[in-house]
Design a protein around this nucleic acid. Structure first.
Lengths: 221, 221
DNA sequence: AAACTTGTTCACAAAATTGTAACAAATACC
DNA sequence: GGTATTTGTTACAATTTTGTGAACAAGTTT
């Protein structure tokens, strides 16, 4: 919570703490930046009018390094450029005076959205192949095909980085998890099974072997 | 969002995502149809000028199967036949260039309307299956079947989001309530009893297991 | 209070998956 | 051509997940 007026700071802090949030405060822009760097907050409430460094500048600085959700606070009458706010990467704004309940509700809403945000754009689509990650669905040639969880994650990873070659070790790390202890040849088996299931409708072979290197996802020629 | 120009796609995506929407994009009419069939969007933003299959055709195709809200995008000067648009079932149209704010506002307005329209409709109907939420009645194969409250709510939730996979945890959250402390395997038992009751008239199995993921409601193939 | 309904949990069986090893085929190199 | 290396394929065992039936608990109705 970045705000120069002590009374507003205390009020906002109190209500958020009541909801179970942990709240840290800063009274000017410079201190805000220092704090934002030293510990990673889940959300920043940022007043526009600040000593030393105004809200716009703070927002711009923060956005250079993180994508933490930011809610801007503006005094009524203060002209607020919404488009500029969005471009700088603010997630919402509240005009003062505001009701504490509204403020809390917006904080919660932004946090909820932020949680979902990482999962957006979950559909990959190539000629004759459609992969929807959030629905765990794959269509090949208009027909849905059933993949096992590992097969699905492997296909998703490869299709997310088309044309790029990955070694078996890299695939194990990215799909199976860090420091996977098992046999790299495990990947071969899964690739084979994937090819089997994907080739059904006579579509081309999306997963290509790069001899001596690994595998890659081939886009249309 | 169906649009062939990448810059417009990215701009619209960015603004909608900032508002918390999940956005998937397609760059031509054919891809749009494939995607619209594979996962059910809440709204479609549809450019008129598209490669392969123009906006009119896409709209006509989509309307054959669903009543999803459609907003048409037209370039200024491009002749736009409003009457034809309405007849094909478009819900609104925006002329380019448009301000992002206006676009977001219209999307929200159309969704608001659609939501209200949907609320009145408390009946879900699939081949051989009819679910009336307001009356808490279920008919399978023309015969009424008795479900317990939890069974009913579970079926309703799944049937309201067809084709989409839900993990046991997600189902507990959505049907039982947030932060349900109990055993996720409880869902299995309810699914089992639901299947038992639904299969009576030899109808197909609507509730499908997705191995390693959860369950989903399958529409007719 | 007894009978019944509903929801939950547990244990075990059944099914699907994943990982590994062995062998065959393909490729690069000399 | 011959050899070593890499990749494809197959089979099988180990593991994980799901289906099922029964038991138990809590709440409702009779």
């Amino acid at each position: 919570m970045v705000e120069d007026e002590e009374s507003v700071r205390d009020l906002v802090s109190m209500y958020l703490k009541k909801e179970g949030f942990r709240v840290e405060t800063a009274e000017d822009g410079e201190k805000a930046l220092t704090m934002a760097r030293s510990f990673a907050p889940d959300l920043i409430l940022l007043d526009l009018m600040l000593p030393k460094l105004d809200g716009w500048a703070v927002c711009r600085e923060i956005r250079k390094t993180t994508s933490v959700p930011i809610i801007m606070l503006t005094a009524r009458g203060e002209e607020f450029d919404r488009v500029l706010g969005l471009e700088l990467g603010a997630d919402d704004y509240i005009t003062k005076p505001f009701s504490p309940r509204e403020m809390v509700a917006r904080v919660k809403a932004v946090l909820r959205r932020a949680k979902l945000a990482g999962k957006q754009n979950t559909v990959l689509s190539y000629p004759g192949l459609l992969i929807d990650h959030s629905a765990s669905r794959v269509e090949a040639g208009g027909r849905e095909i059933q993949l096992t969880p590992k097969e699905f994650e492997l296909l998703w990873f490869l299709a997310s980085h088309p044309r790029r070659v990955y070694s078996r070790e890299q695939l194990l790390e990215n799909v199976w998890g860090y420091a996977y202890p098992g046999d790299p040849r495990t990947v071969d088996t899964h690739v084979k099974r994937l090819r089997e299931k994907l080739k059904n409708p006579g579509a081309k072979n999306y997963i290509v072997t790069v001899w001596g290197k690994g595998y890659r996802f081939e886009t249309a020629e």
